[in-house]
Simulated assay, not measured.
Amino acid sequence: MTTQPVHDPRPLFAQAVDQAEQQITAVRPDELSNSTPCADYDVRALLGHMVAVLRKIARAGAGGDARNVADVADGIADTDWANAFTQARGEVEEIWADDALLDRMITLPWATLPGRTVVDAYTHEFTVHSWDVAAATGRLGELDPVLAERALDAFAEFAPPESRSGQGPFGPVVQVSDDADVYTRLAAYVGRRP
């Protein structure tokens, strides 16, 4: 009898976070007030949200209450976003290096899920937010299409249009042409207006 290898979502998560980090590093201080496709955030607030998400992942992985972490990190100097992101990422990688976390139930502000599912979900969130930053700063050509394909497949499974209430992070699907690039289709699927 052959057993299937167990899926480790951390390498793909690292790719998505690498991409996010590249986008954050490229942001200039004069771009921080640009609006983003993520309606609640300008670039500064979106970067603060991305740092906060890493802090939530670390807190939840360490067994703490991620609800106590603000949705947007503040108090970060305009020239220090990349450093803040890298520091938060290091904490996530240290905590989530423990293989046992992948099979443990992890409590997040919005659900309690197996660790593997948590890592997958945040992989796709970082993929979308990388597009948000790239769209707001004119760097769309720098994104990895493989990450978008994986995110689009995942969102179709766990955030189908018929299950959306309009109260969460996903708006109604926006119609785009069938030949649109994968990031445009991903953005439209999660309710952005590319």
Rank of each mutant, 00 (worst) to 15 (best):
V69C: 02
R55L: 08
D99Y: 02
T86C: 07
D181G: 14
T137F: 01
T117E: 13
A159R: 12
D65W: 00
L47K: 05
E91T: 15
P194S: 09
T112V: 09
L46C: 10
E149T: 11
R164D: 08
D144W: 02
T107F: 01
P5V: 10
Q4E: 11
D80T: 12
G138N: 08
M1E: 13
R89I: 05
D153I: 07
D132P: 04
A62Y: 01
L101N: 10
D18W: 04
A66H: 00
E91M: 11
W131T: 06
V119D: 04
T3L: 09
R185L: 08
H129N: 06
F13I: 05
H124D: 12
D74W: 02
W131V: 05
G191Q: 04
A82K: 06
P109R: 05
R193E: 14
V43S: 07
A14F: 07
V133N: 01
L12Y: 11
G171R: 00
A26W: 01
G168Q: 10
D80Y: 07
D74Y: 00
L113C: 06
G63D: 10
E125R: 04
R116K: 14
I106F: 03
R104D: 13
V51S: 01
Y122Q: 12
Q19W: 01
D71C: 00
Q22A: 15
A73G: 01
D42Q: 14
V182W: 04
G63P: 04
G166H: 06
A60H: 05
D40C: 07
G90T: 11
V174K: 10
V190T: 13
A39T: 14
S130R: 04
I76D: 00
E91Q: 15
V53N: 13
S130E: 02
T3G: 08
L46A: 11
D30E: 15
R116F: 07
D40I: 03
P145V: 02
E94Y: 11
T127C: 06
I57R: 05
T2Q: 13
V69H: 04
L46D: 09
A88Q: 05
R55G: 12
V53I: 15
R44K: 15
R185G: 08
A135T: 08
V92I: 10
V119M: 14
D8C: 08
A77G: 14
R67K: 13
S35R: 15
A111K: 12
P37S: 13
D178R: 08
H124Q: 14
T107L: 02
A88K: 01
V6H: 09
G64D: 08
A20Q: 11
R185H: 03
D178T: 03
A73W: 03
V51F: 06
L47W: 02
T86K: 15
V53G: 12
S177E: 12
M1P: 10
T127F: 00
F170S: 14
L113T: 07
A159G: 12
V53M: 12
A111L: 04
V51K: 04
L46G: 08
